[in-house]
């Protein structure tokens, strides 16, 4: 393992961006580890959430934004609820995803593909069309066997809509997305 030069890995602009966008003071973290202790998804993380926080304090942008953990965070707010320093850790994780997406860094492509399929459906219909989202996801990832085992369980229940429930204000929703993209590229 390489020796980490704390001066050269430190990106102060990144630290400030995370603090600014999340509204959370990273210096308040004293590394008790409670966020990691209660994280239901820690078993799947490559970097535990308390170590994400530590890496943020050290300004290690690449390490944090290239992690898989930020995409696997379930947004369940256990970390936020139990932080003894009142840090909204879940919001910090959210903001890390925002920054990573802006920079085109995604270590868990499947997750963002699903989210993108979801939002594409919202943009198109105004409401989510569940079958359409899964179909889109399968088409983009080529994972054709996704949840095929569940089909016989759910099909007879008559719950899945064969058609999207488009709303009248579809254009309004599309405009929200359009303006969002314009703001982003500005």
């Amino acid at each position: 393992m390489d020796v980490t030069n704390l001066e050269s890995v430190r990106d102060d602009d990144f630290i400030h961006a995370v603090m600014e966008e999340s509204g959370q003071d990273l210096t308040h973290c004293y590394q008790c580890g409670n966020c990691t202790a209660g994280c239901p998804c820690g078993f799947a993380y490559d970097i535990q959430v308390s170590q994400i926080m530590r890496n943020l304090q050290a300004g290690r942008k690449d390490k944090v934004l290239n992690s898989r953990s930020i995409w696997l965070c379930l947004s369940c707010s256990s970390c936020t609820t139990r932080c003894p320093n009142n840090i909204d850790v879940a919001r910090v994780m959210d903001v890390l995803r925002h920054i990573a997406r802006r920079e085109g860094r995604v270590a868990e492509r499947g997750v963002t593909t699903f989210w993108d399929a979801f939002l594409a459906s919202v943009r198109k219909h105004g409401r989510v069309y569940e079958l359409g989202v899964v179909a889109n996801y399968v088409a983009r990832t080529g994972r054709v066997w996704t949840d095929i085992d569940l089909l016989p369980r759910i099909a007879p229940k008559g719950k899945l809509s064969p058609m999207p429930h488009g709303i009248q204000g579809r254009d309004e929703i599309a405009r929200i997305f359009q303006r969002y993209e314009e703001e982003r590229t500005r």
């Binding site: 990691t36 202790a37 994280c39 535990q48």
Partner: peptide
């Protein structure tokens, strides 16, 4: 008792 060992870096 569910906790963390931050020195191990593990739950």
């Amino acid at each position: 008792v569910r906790g963390v060992d931050t020195l191990l870096g593990e739950q």
